[in-house]
Amino acid sequence: MKRFSVILWAMLIMALVFSACTPAQPSEKTKVRVATDATFPPFEMVDENTKQLTGFDVELMNAIAQKAGFEVEWINVGFDPMLAGIAECQYDMAIAAITITEERKASMDFSDPYINAGQIVTVRKETTDISGKNDLKGKKIGAQLGTTGAIEAEKIEGAEVKTYDSYDQAFLDLANGQIDAVIADYPTTLAFLATNPDKLKTVGEVFTDENYGVAFCKKKADLIPQVNAAIKALKEDGTIKKLEEKWLAGK
């Protein structure tokens, strides 16, 4: 009986030693619901071949998640419903070339800025009577619903503003002569011009100083320090610069 007890104790000790030497299994990553509007190339779009989300913002968020240690669950939704969903905490975060504004801060939180992108005017190549924002009085202007481009268009005296669910529709109408101009974020504009180099051109200078940031549901403030630390690290290690060169340079 005593011998059996000794063997039992020996087996128990060996089991404890073995378990101490076995590496701990990694804990499951927290899943974060991130909304985007994949109609904003080169920032977010659906790859025609793979049918997967891609673009500057998508790659940036995936890099942020890797640095911060969480897993992204992507939700693709229209820009205006996306902002409403963040305000109502249907999503944890959103990234979609979202300009940080004081008005938006009332219903959602923001990360530190990750890129600066102001507004610019786009017209058809043959247009000669519009050389910038100051020439848009009385013109028909297109912009995406809920964007700062739409906000700026509404400020122009006598202008007829037509809003769209996505900017590709606005630029298509512009190319087809349905509207006189489009006001949009500069990087987004460059991407659309790259697909219509013979039809469209920008006029004037970028006329607003704006920053894109990651938006947060106000109940998810605990995520902000993690995301800010990741953005800082990605700036310092050159990742964001590489994304700019890949997606924005020459667009």
Rank of each mutant, 00 (worst) to 15 (best):
I115N: 06
I95H: 04
V121Q: 07
Q25R: 09
E44T: 13
A35S: 05
D80T: 11
M14T: 08
E210C: 08
N134Q: 12
N134P: 00
F70M: 01
P225Y: 03
A84S: 10
S131L: 13
W247R: 02
D173L: 07
G149A: 07
K246W: 14
T202N: 06
V203G: 05
P23T: 03
V46L: 11
L234W: 07
M61H: 07
G146F: 08
S5T: 09
L53W: 02
F43D: 11
E102P: 00
K235S: 09
F40I: 15
G149E: 11
Y164D: 04
I75R: 02
S27W: 01
I141R: 01
F192S: 02
K139L: 08
K137V: 09
E245R: 08
N62V: 06
G213N: 12
L8E: 09
S107R: 08
K51P: 08
L200S: 02
F40H: 08
A87F: 06
I120G: 05
N49D: 14
C217L: 07
K235Q: 13
E126A: 07
Y212D: 09
F171V: 07
C217I: 11
Q226I: 05
L53I: 12
K199Y: 05
V121H: 01
R124I: 14
I151H: 11
E154Q: 14
